[in-house]
Structure formats: structure tokens, C-alpha cells
């Protein structure tokens, strides 16, 4: 833990004192080795090894991601069955059920991915875990106090119109969440030797995002003394998915920008896009659930928001996967052309 803390500190210090790259100090972007004849790609300098490696894929990432996405269906089925058996358990049972709903996809993914990372792909399982924890800590120690206590957004959002709620979700909450997810990766692992593949952006951002999401919704459930089985369980997932989606987008942009010099607005655009998507999905996750109120319908259903957010995550997952594959293919093609 001490080493990880040092890493973060150094990374943050490095931000302030980072020297400019110059021809006198030509080093590999990934490993930092001094280069006599550097390879240039996208205005970045690489050693030969890393030039050929950074566009490699990380199949484990997509496989575990897909597995988690598919496991959501199983989880929802289990929730539905549990709801039929005990729709509204009380006390510790509720919290335990909520913890399982939150923990199975997030910690499950973490265990799977750390098991699958073998070291040869450049990523460190320990860093993945560290980012998961960092995301979790940021959510608990910084973001929730900021949004709930200082900005008091919960009560104020409730008291305003849907349009204002949408704007606030996008401009305040979405941007904040996206920035925090971006910051966690950007100011820790982004400039280290362990960020050696484009897909590592998605890997590390996903780790941070899942830790962040699990803690956000975990505390949400804890503050309410545990949520009901079906509505509560689905809502926990619904509220967690926007963070996962935002982390995929942030990870993609960080991954691209890490290995190719991009215009200055590239990363801000990526973060803004992630923030907007996160905000829209947070809004949709709550507002779409407010259905018609009548004598026989109670004005709420946990399904619409959940379905929309699952679809959004799936689309984001597919898009990021597709775009990264495309980028990597192009890169490899260009490198082959160079000989």
C-alpha cells in the first residue's frame, strides 16, 4: 500500500514538475529508455519494442467485460427470483443482498481480470486493484461529500424541474464524475510504464470506474439502511452503470491520447463526452423509472432506466471495442508499411 501511495504522490508531483520532452532527452514514451534512434509515431517517441506493442489487444479485457455484461442478465434473474421469495427483507438481509448485487459484477470483474493479466501484456494486476481502490476512495472521501454535503445536490435536484435536473445531471454531476475518473487514471498510471497498450486506458479506467461505481451505489444503499430486493437491486445497478459507461469513454480517450499526440481539445472533448453521457444516463436512470401514476399503477418501475442504461453500456462497450480495434489495426498497418 505504501508503494501505491508513493506512486500516486509521485505521479501528482510529476504533473507539476514535468520537464518538456526535448531532443536532448529522447526517451521511449512507454519505458523511458534513452533512445539513440527513436521511432516516432503520432508525434510520440518509442523504442522498437513498445512501438510494436502499444497497438496490441488485450483479449482478457473484452472477454471479462463481456462476461460481466452477460452476468448482469443472470444477476437480474436472480434478483427477480429472490424478490419473489422475499420481496422486502429487512435489516442485515437487505444490506447483504444489496452488497451482493453491487459486489458480484464489480469485484467479480476485478478478480477475473487480475487473474487473467499475466504480466506479459504490460499491465500490472496490482495497479488494476489499486485503481479500483482509488476509485472507491475518491467516491467515498471526495465526491459524495462534495455532491451530498457541500453542493447538497440531492435535495436541490428534487426540488427543481426535470429540465433543470437534466442540465444539472449533465453539467454538474456528469462532468464531475467523468473528471474524477479521468483524473484517477490520468494522474496516476497514465504516464507510467504499466500503461503500455492503448487498451490499458480502458482497463485502468474500468477498474477505477467500477470501484467508483460500487462505492457510490454502496453508500447510496447504506445511507438508506438497505434497499428492497427488486426495485432497490435494479436501481443499484442502474445507478452504477453510468459510471462504468463513462469510464469506458474516458479510458478510450486516455488510451488514444497516450500513444499519439492529439490536439489540446481532444482530451477535454473526451471527458466532456463521458461527462455528458454519464449525466444523461444518470438522469435517464431515475427519470425514466417515474412511470404513470394511477389507481393500479404506483408511479415507479425500476425497469426502464435499467434497460436504457444497460443498452447504453453495451453500446459504449461495443463502440470502444470497435474503435480501439480499428485504431490498433490502422497502427499496425502503418507500422508494417514503414517496414
Amino acid at each position: 500500500m505504501g508503494c501505491r501511495s508513493t506512486l500516486i504522490l509521485k505521479a501528482l508531483q510529476g504533473l507539476a514538475t514535468m520537464p518538456a520532452m526535448s531532443k536532448q532527452h529522447q526517451t521511449c514514451l512507454v519505458c523511458g529508455e534513452r533512445l539513440e534512434e527513436p521511432h516516432v509515431y503520432g508525434d510520440r517517441l518509442y523504442c522498437e519494442t513498445h512501438l510494436s506493442q502499444f497497438s496490441d489487444d488485450l483479449a482478457a479485457l473484452w472477454q471479462t467485460g463481456l462476461l460481466i455484461l452477460l452476468s448482469l442478465a443472470v444477476l437480474v434473474g436472480t434478483i427477480a427470483i429472490a424478490n419473489a421469495v422475499a420481496p422486502n427483507p429487512s435489516g442485515p438481509t437487505r444490506l447483504l443482498a444489496n452488497a451482493l448485487v453491487i459486489g458480484l459484477p464489480s469485484i467479480g470483474w476485478l478478480i477475473l481480470i487480475t487473474q487473467r493479466l499475466d504480466g506479459e501484456d504490460g499491465a500490472a494486476p496490482s495497479l488494476v486493484s489499486a485503481l479500483f481502490v482509488l476509485g472507491s476512495l475518491m467516491a467515498a472521501a471526495v465526491v459524495r461529500p462534495l455532491t451530498n454535503e457541500i453542493l447538497a445536490l440531492g435535495g436541490r435536484l428534487a426540488a427543481t424541474s426535470p429540465a433543470n435536473r437534466f442540465v444539472a445531471n449533465v453539467l454538474i454531476l456528469g462532468m464531475l464524475h467523468a473528471f474524477v475518473l479521468y483524473g484517477i487514471v490520468r494522474y496516476s498510471v497514465w504516464r507510467t510504464t504499466s500503461f503500455s497498450l492503448r487498451v490499458h486506458g480502458v482497463l485502468y479506467a474500468s477498474a477505477a470506474g467500477l470501484g467508483y461505481a460500487a462505492t457510490q451505489v454502496g453508500l447510496f444503499a447504506l445511507e438508506r439502511g438497505g434497499l428492497s430486493m427488486l426495485s432497490g437491486g435494479l436501481t443499484l445497478l442502474t445507478r452504477a452503470l453510468p459510471f462504468a459507461t463513462a469510464s469506458l469513454i474516458v479510458g478510450y480517450f486516455l488510451g488514444i491520447n497516450r500513444f499519439e499526440n492529439q490536439p489540446f481539445y481532444y482530451l477535454p472533448s473526451g471527458v466532456a463526452l463521458a461527462g455528458a453521457v454519464c449525466g444523461v444516463l444518470l438522469y435517464a436512470g431515475t427519470e425514466l423509472n417515474n412511470i404513470r401514476l394511477n389507481i393500479t399503477t404506483d408511479g415507479f418501475s425500476p425497469w426502464p432506466g435499467f434497460v436504457v442504461n444497460v443498452l447504453a453500456l453495451t453500446i459504449a462497450f461495443g463502440a470502444v471495442y470497435g474503435l480501439l480495434q480499428r485504431q490498433n489495426t490502422i497502427t499496425k498497418a502503418r507500422l508494417r508499411l514503414r517496414g
Binding site: 506512486l7 514535468m18 508525434d43 495497479l127 504516464r191 499526440n261
Partner: peptide, 9 residues
């Protein structure tokens, strides 16, 4: 693991 590479553009 996670060795910091300082140069940025």
C-alpha cells in the same frame, strides 16, 4: 510496475 515516465508534450 507503474514506473513514472516524466516526459509529456
Amino acid at each position: 510496475v507503474g514506473r513514472l515516465i516524466s516526459h509529456v508534450t
